[in-house]
C-alpha cells in the first residue's frame, strides 16, 4: 500500500453506498454487458482494452469507493464497501481496534470500513450473504490492473497453490 486511504466523502458516493441495492443492480448489469463486450474488445486490441478498463476503473471506482486498485475486486461480497480502504487491508472483517463510535482505530474521523460493510451487506438482495466467505490472501501482483478483466479471465479467482478454501454453506442468488 503506497499511500494511506483518506476519509473521503464525495458528493453522491456516500448516498449511493448507503443504497447498496442500486449498486448491486449496476454491478449485475455491468457484468452482463461488459462480459459480452470484453471478448470482442480483446480481439480488436488487448492493450487498448486493458488501458481503457484500468482508466475507467480508476475514475469510476476511485470516485465511488475510493478504489485502491488491488485488481481483485470483492466489493459485492463486502457490502459494496471497499475493504482495501481499511488501513490494515483486512478482507475478512473488522479488527479488534474499532472505536466505540464505530470509527477506525487508525483514522479516527473515518467510519470503520467493516462496520459499514456488515450493515450494508445486510440490506443487499443477491450477494449479502457473501460477506461470510473467507477471502484468500491478496495477490499483490495484480495491483493496478483491471479487476474486471481479471474477473473475465478468471485471474482473480486464482489462489496461492497451497491454499485450501473453506467450504461454507451460504445462500447467494447470484445472477438473476
Amino acid at each position: 500500500m503506497s499511500q494511506m486511504p483518506e476519509a473521503r466523502r464525495l458528493p453522491g458516493s456516500e448516498w449511493l453506498k448507503d443504497h447498496p441495492r442500486i449498486l448491486e443492480w449496476i454491478y449485475l448489469r455491468s457484468k452482463a454487458v461488459l462480459g459480452r463486450l470484453y471478448p470482442w474488445m480483446r480481439r480488436l486490441s488487448p492493450g487498448w482494452t486493458e488501458r481503457l478498463f484500468v482508466r475507467s476503473e480508476e475514475w469510476v471506482k476511485g470516485y465511488l469507493f475510493n478504489c485502491q486498485m488491488c485488481g481483485q475486486c470483492i466489493l459485492h461480497s463486502t457490502g459494496m464497501t471497499c475493504p482495501m480502504n481499511c488501513p490494515k487491508n483486512l478482507r475478512n472483517g473488522p479488527c479488534g481496534g474499532v472505536r466505540a463510535d464505530g470509527h477506525c482505530e487508525v483514522i479516527p474521523e473515518m467510519p470503520c470500513v467493516w462496520v459499514q460493510a456488515w450493515e450494508r451487506s445486510s440490506r443487499m438482495a443477491h450477494y449479502g450473504e457473501e460477506i461470510r466467505l473467507i477471502q484468500p490472501p491478496v495477490n499483490r501482483q495484480l495491483e493496478h490492473t483491471s479487476a474486471w478483466i481479471n474477473m473475465f479471465e478468471g485471474i482473480d479467482a486464482r489462489t496461492p497453490p497451497g491454499w485450501v478454501p473453506v467450504e461454507l454453506e451460504i445462500e447467494t442468488s447470484g445472477d438473476p
Binding site: M1, P87, K88, N89, L90, R91, N92, G93, C95, I134, Q135, P136, P137, V138, R140, W163, V164, V166
Partner: peptide, 14 residues
C-alpha cells in the same frame, strides 16, 4: 511501514 500482507484469518488458515 505497516505490512498486513495477510489478515488474521488468512494467517490462521495458512
Amino acid at each position: 511501514k505497516r505490512v498486513f500482507d495477510l489478515d488474521s484469518i488468512q494467517l490462521l488458515r495458512t
